[in-house]
Amino acid sequence: MAISFDEVQHVARLARLELSNSELLIFQSELNALLGHFSDLNEIDVTGILPKPHAVSMHNVWADDIAEVGLTREYALRNAPRSRAGLFVVPTIIEE
């Protein structure tokens, strides 16, 4: 399950990471080493074992439908780099 250079480039782009060619090569070899360890798991017989979606053996941790007051707007916006008229301001989104 070796990972290709193109795949590393693709994942980097999705994560909005700007990597040079030499960095991409380093990540490719490091990721492949990591995936190599996981391939050992393929040796294990898992017949009859259900996939476990979570490490803890709990389920149905839910909250009742009761509304609570959250943060004040002033407080919520306090750490925003930019805000205006009660809105968080972000750079204009240009679609790729």
């Binding site: 509304a67 609570e68 959250g70 707007r73 919520a76 009660g86 809105l87 968080f88």
Partner: peptide
């Protein structure tokens, strides 16, 4: 996944939490 009230309209960012 939080307990903020569900409503239509209202002043922006007044039903928010961490």
């Amino acid at each position: 996944f939080c307990r903020c009230e569900v409503a239509f309209g209202g002043e922006p960012n007044t039903r928010v939490c961490p």
